[in-house]
Amino acid sequence: MKDIIKKINAALFAFIVFYLGFIGFRAFSSGYPFSLICYNCKSCDSVCVIGIDPQGFMAASIVDDPDIYVYVTNYRIYAGEAEKLDPDMIIQTHDRKLSISKALRDGTVTRDSEVITYKMKARHAANICIECAACERVCPVKLPILDVVKGLKNKESGAGK
């Protein structure tokens, strides 16, 4: 193997190891290091009536970013409100999934229409979460999911914990 190729390969392999360490570091810096334990089994997803995927909250704390998109597949919201919250929020309408801004532009929905969400930012999902704790009850490793939800509520975009 040529020398330069070896160096590229070695650098990229080192990047992979660094990437794993970086994930661990971010989880610690978010203040929720237990989020690394998440099995990603989606047991929590199956019990949320609003259709929130609570594993998304764990993912948000692993990467220490409240602006990642998580599944929220059964929350009803008025289109105008959704657009004000986040123009890139993904909604479901007429068997399609598209951003609320696109749906309003196309005329698929009006501002007074009620739409069902599909994906939204983790901090918005935390705000609509009613903290029923059904997800905590079914978690196989008993993660304190509500701690993360409460931390994400009313969080400003991009701010660390």
Binding site: I23, L36, C38, N40, A60, I62, V63, D64, D67, D88
Partner: peptide, 18 residues
């Protein structure tokens, strides 16, 4: 397109790796 590097990291399943 807008890039959010955090969204890439959320695609990594730590459980099987660890």
């Amino acid at each position: 397109e807008k890039i959010n590097p955090s969204q890439i990291i959320t695609g990594t399943f730590l459980h099987p790796i660890t």
